[in-house]
Amino acid sequence: MKVQTARAVRTLVAAGCVSLLSVAGVARAADSKQPIVIPTHNWSSQVVMAYVIGGMFESMGNNVEYVSADSQAVYESIRTGDVTISHEVWQSTFGKSFLTAMEKGGVIDAGTHTATTLEEMGVPNWVIEQDLCPGLPNWEALKDCHENFTTPDSDGKGRWLEGPQSWHGDLMPVRLEALGLADKWTVKFAGSADALWTELAAAKKEGRGTIVFNWTPNFTDADGFTFIEFPEYTDGCRVEDGGDGSCGSPKGWLKKAANEKFPKTHPAAYAAFEALDFTTEQIGQMAALVDTDKMDHKDAAAKWLADNEDVWAPWTKQ
């Protein structure tokens, strides 16, 4: 009996110590040494930014790991904690996946970049320079220049090359209809971003007009790209919000997402991630290091970090 009491007391004391220690641990709030998992997708600015953010975390003493992932499928992984963050959540392309994952629980919104995004139909600058559609970028110009934009499969109409249908559904066909352009223009859905860039390159070589879906900031900015100015976006102008759909795209946000446990496991790193905020120019710089200067993604990130310490260092000292 006595022996047992003694053991019980000992256990209690030990338990007390352990809990004290762990309370101390929480109070100190140091970041866990578990690696922060950063996803890399298949476009340069995102990959460079992943290494930039990783480098920033590493400078704070954290461990970082990179995992290549599909840009749509990644939100499910953030939700379950297999990936920790996503640093480029584009409103109209990934907004749906992101909000869906948030709704299911497990993903938190870690703030918004200063950089605003625009995702819209547009033309490469040389289309305007060659005057293939006089009056652009005003959309009314589209009313009488569709002959310069036909392709074999477009049935004599001008072709808009839109991104994959999973990006915005029937937004563009509806817009054509609403603007009264449907008898002169038709929408073709590309299968991937690669298809859009190939179309840009191919149309340039052929000297044929092309209207493609594109966004900024993007590496195509370097070659010159002009977005078409449609009637301005207003709340409720889209069909799903009760409008007729005859409006352009809104300026979109560029958000950061994180797994909900990230603030608890890595409080300091999370604070830095929340403070982190890139502008359009900075994202453009990162992309240009790879796309224009042909640097390796990791080298580009190292160079950017070295050149811009005054930008990112304050974020780490939250």
Partner: peptide, 19 residues
């Protein structure tokens, strides 16, 4: 479908982002 079709393949690619 990565080039751009309107067949089953396109939907399979789309399902990667589907809830």
């Amino acid at each position: 479908a990565l080039i751009g079709t309107d067949d089953l393949g396109q939907l399979i690619l789309g399902s990667l982002s589907d809830r």
